[in-house]
Write a protein that binds this DNA or RNA. Structure first.
Length: 470
RNA sequence: GACCCCAUCGUCUAGCCAGGUCAGGACGUCACCCUUUCAAGGUGAAGACACGGGUUCGAAUCCCGUUGGGGUCACCA
């Protein structure tokens, strides 16, 4: 049997981080078994579905590298098939028309709650003579669900879950206007798409009971279920807008590499022993529904950040340059010149070692690309007081003598000067850093010197020294 | 309220199913080392089996209960 999984978002918002993980698990499972991973857009709520949201979801999946097989299925396009199934059920006596008014339903629900019953609809029209039907009311179609016994879902994550059938009432299949409900559509689509494994958030666990009732009524094979725990916010409550960034696009905008987000998400709720850092190719080789935890996990930005830093450090310079260049151009309000780009690439080894995110990286790389004279930030300016400038002058003299300009040769020159002057290297290096970068924090100062080159380096130093002279 | 699910360091988790480990790792935190700043790296530290009963020679592991958390209860998806 070929494994077929699906991700079925409704396009009412952006690709939520929890949805992204659900998609990832489905993708991983399908890839692990050489199966197919399908995408279905559940756009039957026309009022809330938007084209922009659909596109955002597709973009999000694309960014994460979760390629789906074939064309996306649009649930709204399949309404006729859904109603046909409902008619089937009706003809077979497995469903019936219900003429209750919304008011009656509300009263029923309240009464049921009051007596602590789980069955919210009392089955009024279940066995009532259709001849009693009021002429002016268009009915809904309800499933004739079993009254007693139990329904069992053997969930790959949650284990065997049993619910008494008296807790399950006769759900609506077709609304009064004849449109199918979600509960019907999902089942029909999953069946028609030959889905073998339904991996989704455990907020759907109770739906699984109702849905398996529809499968049975139709005589269809029930697919395997795997209900994965939801992701919670740092406060332990369901992840929501209150917790800040929601869509994967927000994490992309924060400068987290896609592989860091995938790695983090994969590790959230799923484990392969003590493995923490792994590629999706590795995860594909390891993934199993059995290894998904049963308890909800909290979203931890600190850990994502640490993964992000790891992947940035590991990234090849040319690829990294390509992703940060637009960010830098944005900050510079113009495209990079060849010189700026060359400095950026040369400076990347020292820069990426320190970056937590791509945004971070762009900010810290800025000084390489800024034209002279540099503006020093407050802390750097403080280092460039009279005493600092004296040290800077010392360094300038030493550097001016350097012929073969490299990180090593400039270091040798500055160290020699420091020794001769009886100064600790740091006393000279910090003013130098302030002059060269405009900041107190940067990659190794000799690396900076090497990247900048002699004329630019001396120029930046002179910008500071001359300013005082004047 | 009813039904369902869950419960190991602050967080993510390994270990649980097939009882016997100093309960392991990672992130974070702290200290030290390295050091031209900041990172990275290295070393080390603090830090958990929710509680109560069983079963057993022995329980994080099996059973029951309590407490706590979460989810679902629509002619939404």
């Amino acid at each position: 049997m070929t494994v077929v999984t699906r991700f079925a978002p409704s396009p009412t918002g952006f690709l939520h981080i929890g949805g992204a993980r659900t998609a990832l698990f489905n993708w991983l499972y399908a890839r692990r078994h050489g199966g197919r991973f399908l995408l279905r857009i559940e756009d039957t709520d026309r009022a809330r579905s938007t084209e922009a949201a659909k596109q955002a979801i597709l973009d999000g999946l694309d960014w994460l590298g979760l390629e789906w097989d074939g064309e996306p299925v649009y649930q709204s396009a399949r309404a006729e098939r859904h109603t046909a199934v409902a008619r089937n059920l009706l003809d077979a006596g497995n469903a019936y028309r219900c003429y209750c008014s919304p008011e009656e339903l509300v009263a029923m629900r309240e009464a049921a709650r009051k007596r602590g019953s789980g069955r919210l609809y009392d089955g009024t029209w279940r066995d009532r003579d259709p001849a009693d039907a009021p002429k002016d009311v268009s009915p809904v179609v309800r499933l004739k669900a079993p009254l007693d016994g139990v329904t069992v879902v053997d969930d790959a994550v949650q284990g065997r879950v049993t619910v008494r059938n008296d807790q399950l009432d006769d759900m609506v299949l077709l609304r009064a206007d004849g449109t199918p409900t979600y509960m019907l559509s999902v089942v029909v689509d999953d069946h028609d798409m030959d889905i073998t494994h339904i991996v989704r958030g455990d907020d759907h666990l109770t739906n699984a009971f109702r849905q398996s009732l529809i499968y049975r009524a139709m005589g269809w094979a029930v697919p395997a279920f795997a209900h994965i725990p939801l992701i919670h916010g740092p406060d332990g409550a369901k992840l929501s807008k209150r917790h800040g960034a929601l869509g994967v696009d927000a994490y992309r905008d924060m400068g987290f590499p896609a592989e860091a987000v995938c790695n983090y998400l994969a590790r959230l709720g799923w484990s392969h022993g003590d493995d923490e850092i792994f590629s999706m190719a590795q995860a594909t080789g390891w993934f199993d529904l059995e290894d998904i935890g049963k308890s909800p996990a909290r979203f931890d930005l600190a850990k994502l950040t640490s993964l992000s830093a790891h992947y940035i450090r590991a990234m090849a310079d040319d690829r990294l340059a390509g992703t940060v260049e637009p960010l830098i151009a944005g900050r510079l309000a113009g495209p990079l010149t060849d010189t700026q780009r060359a400095r950026l690439i040369a400076g990347l080894p020292g820069l990426k070692e320190r970056a937590k995110s791509l945004v971070d990286l762009a900010d810290s790389a800025l000084f390489y690309c800024r034209p002279r004279p540099l503006e020093a930030d407050a802390k750097a300016a403080k280092l460039l007081d009279d005493s600092g400038k004296a040290k800077l002058a010392l360094a300038r003299n030493a550097l001016a003598e350097v012929e073969e300009w490299t990180a090593d040769s400039t270091e040798a020159a500055v160290r020699a000067t420091a020794d001769a002057a009886g100064e600790k290297l740091g006393r000279i290096a910090q003013p130098l850093r302030a002059a060269l970068t405009g900041r107190t924090v940067s990659p190794g100062i000799f690396e900076v010197l090497g990247v900048l080159g002699k004329p630019e380096s001396l120029g930046r130093i002179d910008d500071i020294l001359d300013r005082t002279a004047a």
